[in-house]
């Protein structure tokens, strides 16, 4: 850059002091440092840093808001899922209740039918047993009459005399009793 002017300004043969320690340049350097640094500070403090800070804050707020929104939506969907599952469980319970009720009712009905049928059958059975007993008694009385006749006939053939009716009946009854 302006390196040539540096030499033209210094008188020839003059021993230059080490530049950073040349106190003649201090005033100018400090003057411009104050101006530039104060300018930089004011621009940073009043314009640049508030702006960047606002950008970062806005972004952070946006992220936080979005996260909160997502959290809210998640909670809502969780609640919907829970209520759906509750409804499902309720319906299932109700279905089971209806089914068991129906089952009980049908079991009771079939039990009742079975009972009446059984009593009817028992009655019929009892009737039949009575009939059998009557028939048996009738048959038994017939058997003794036939036996008496047969015995009387046998005795008459063997002895040639007709036995007494009462004696035959007693004998047959005694034989039947054995």
């Amino acid at each position: 850059m302006a390196t040539t002017t540096a030499h033209t300004e210094q008188p020839a043969g003059h021993k230059e002091p080490f530049p950073p320690f040349n106190s003649q340049t201090f005033a100018s350097q400090l003057f411009w440092l104050v101006i530039t640094f104060v300018f930089l500070y004011v621009m940073m403090a009043k314009v640049a840093l508030p702006r960047i800070g606002a950008i970062i804050d806005t972004r952070q707020k946006r992220i936080d808001d979005d996260l909160a929104h997502a959290q809210k939506l998640k909670a809502e969907s969780d609640a919907a899922l829970a209520s759906y599952e509750k409804a499902l469980a309720d319906a299932r319970n109700r279905g089971q209740a209806i089914a068991s009720e129906m089952r009980d009712k049908q079991a009771a009905a079939s039990e009742a039918t079975r009972k009446t049928l059984e009593t009817q059958l028992n009655a019929k059975l009892a009737d039949a047993e009575k009939t059998i007993a009557a028939t048996k008694t009738a048959a038994m009385s017939n058997v003794s009459a036939i036996a008496q006749d047969a015995a009387a006939t046998i005795v008459e053939r063997l002895t040639g005399t007709k036995p007494q009716e009462q004696a035959v009946a007693a004998a047959v009854a005694g034989a039947l009793k054995r």
Binding site: M1, S28, W32, L33, F37, L40, M43
Partner: peptide
């Protein structure tokens, strides 16, 4: 004496 120097130019450039 206050002059605009090469140092001043780079300070202005930096700021």
């Amino acid at each position: 004496e206050i002059s605009f120097t090469n140092s001043a130019a780079f300070m202005v450039l930096a700021a």
